[in-house]
Design a protein around this nucleic acid. Structure first.
Lengths: 174, 174
DNA sequence: GCAAATGTAAAACGTTCGTTTTACATTTGT
DNA sequence: ACAAATGTAAAACGAACGTTTTACATTTGC
């Protein structure tokens, strides 16, 4: 059973595929297979549900980025888009849809992006043997770019980003 | 006066800042300074208004990308974010918000992204002196990445992308 | 100078929204 | 075994949605 997990999973799927605003509560109750009363007991509100979806997604996404090389970073993204598809970044999309002024959501997005930025910096430092914030920023841009370009160009953008990152890294090494 | 232009401009501003779904028609009539009857005479429907906003934005955006070097491409993006701010790509956001199944909108997005892809290929070819689809894809990824990373990292992502693109181009030349 | 066109203001349309409530069935811990 | 907890089904809530309509004022072209 575990209604909470079932609800969160169903909500993530619907929010990701159709958008936060466009997804009504009745569609959520249907997909989660529960009454609206149970949904509200577990979720509190639609915004709180979205915030919990984002927190859960952050956990799942960041777990995949526990790597030691920039190459593995993009390999992890290749896996991710193979499993989850190419619909852009749910965090940025949530923030944009809510104008950035829905407390729980804006904070979940900020926390995720900060953690993501820190992780990229760590991976670049580990791979290169020293800190290089400028290179890390470039790798972050490539990662974000691959994620969003993949929406209309397909998963090939991830390999393009991976190859570009390899060149930048090689140059930073010599 | 020119109600149509005033409406389109007001709509672009509101859709961009608060999202398509979250922007109600009364907020649009207020911002455009016209009655709902006049709005519907000029726009037809909310979705048609969004489609027209996107078509108009495509015109304005692509006009800025009439350049001959990759460096100028990113300089144009720097100008754009300075004028328009960093809220991600309105085209991708519109598509995501509507699940990709609102006819006029999905087509405007597809047309824009196809034109954008073609333009990047042309600029790379002009700058390099020959076609290089793989490099063009990387430049496109950097452009898209700078646009979206700027939402939380600020406009500095555009200079990071510009520097990265210069390295990739230099390498492709030798 | 008078129709046609174009505008406003505001009410009303039916629908759908997120959320709460009522009434009742089933499980569960002690 | 019995009370508390947890679930369902479904109606109801007021508010807001996108859109249309009614009634009237102003401009505009011939």
């Amino acid at each position: 059973m575990d209604m909470t997990r079932k609800l969160t999973a169903a909500a993530e799927r619907l929010f990701d595929r159709h958008g936060y605003m466009a997804t009504g509560m009745d569609r959520l109750t249907d997909a989660a297979g529960m009454s609206s009363r149970t949904l509200y007991k577990h979720a509190g509100s639609k915004a709180a549900l979205m915030a919990r979806v984002l927190t859960e997604r952050d956990r799942r996404f960041m777990a995949r980025l526990e790597v030691r090389t920039v190459d593995a970073l993009f390999a992890a993204l290749e896996d991710w888009v193979r499993v989850e598809g190419c619909r852009g970044c749910l965090f940025l999309r949530s923030r944009a849809e809510t104008g950035g002024d829905t407390p729980g959501i804006a904070e979940a997005v900020a926390a995720h992006k900060e953690a993501f930025h820190r992780r990229v910096g760590e991976v670049v430092a580990t791979d290169l043997g020293r800190e290089d914030p400028a290179l890390a920023e470039q790798v972050l841009v490539l990662f974000e770019g691959a994620t969003h370009a993949a929406v209309y160009r397909g998963a090939q953008t991830v390999s393009a980003a991976k190859a570009a990152a390899a060149i930048l890294l090689e140059r930073a090494r010599s």
